[in-house]
Design a protein around this nucleic acid. Structure first.
Lengths: 157, 157
DNA sequence: AATGAAACACTTCCTCC
DNA sequence: GGAGGAAGTGTTTCATT
């Protein structure tokens, strides 16, 4: 999987996933190299899809999206048709920031970001209307202790 | 909370949280305004902390971090001393990408990104060594159906 | 093959209208 | 809010090791 990503690449990635506004000069200085090689590597990492995209991270509190729910779902059906429908329903809803298919007795886990409890209830009702679900448990986050986007990239490899 | 964020601000934020590499001209065109006002608004949104930071999103699969676990934790103690110790332990581990304090019978939820099941086991052992925990349930993600960083910003407000 | 330096084009970012 | 300009950046090319 780690197709030809060396220690310098990893250093560059570690910098970029914490702050993508840094200039090439500064990145080069931080990783102990110079502009051109760093730029060529960033280019290749982008082309290879290692760097997927570059985005702004916003503060949910300041945008009236203070409530974060984790939703544990057990499904009623496991056939292909239902799966396609369910997957489409998840992707269509912007409140769903993450959706995972799990191993074990719980089938799916969602991370849902909404305005308040009322908005979550509306989301919940709308979801169970669209697709048949066996059981749903919602966990309400009271406090975000850690919220990173940076992957734990190892020093070497 | 939505301290003076108007419809145009929201449009700009919606663009930036999907692609922060866009030039000012292009953003201005997409939101139906022009360079200067868009620039001034971005500046203010940054100063106000609505835009927290700008980062590169990487592909975990390509960096040997294919395994994602959600960890549900019940705590043994609830005193302030233990809480401080636990919080510090969470923040110190780079594998923990998210940590939430919950309402309800489960006290904490973690999102942990590791190389494989063995790496998770090492993480788990190390964590329970550091802090006393009543019970731990790990949910293994088999597939990431949705993985967004973009908040569901409403059209109006 | 990879690095460093130097040139060009483009953006950002500020000032004035 | 719009126009223009200085400064700084990213991107390319060339010479160097």
């Amino acid at each position: 999987m780690a197709t030809g990503i060396d220690a310098l690449d990893r250093k560059i990635l570690r910098v970029l996933q914490h702050d993508a506004t840094l200039g090439l000069d500064e990145i080069a200085a931080q990783v102990g190299s110079s502009k051109t090689p760093v730029w060529n590597r960033i280019r290749k990492l982008r082309e290879a899809g290692v760097i997927e995209r570059q985005v702004a991270i916003l503060d949910p509190q300041k945008l009236d999206l203070a409530s974060c729910f984790f939703v544990l779902i057990r499904t009623a059906r496991h056939d292909a048709e239902w799966l396609a429908q369910f997957t489409a329903a998840l992707k269509a809803r912007p409140e769903i920031m993450e959706a995972h298919r799990l191993a074990g007795e719980i089938d799916y886990l969602l991370k849902v970001r909404v305005e308040n409890a009322g908005a979550y209830d509306r989301f919940y009702r709308s979801l169970i209307e669209d697709v048949s679900i066996f059981s749903v448990t919602a966990l309400l986050s009271m406090e975000e202790i850690v919220a990173k986007t940076a992957l734990p990239i190892a020093e070497d490899g």
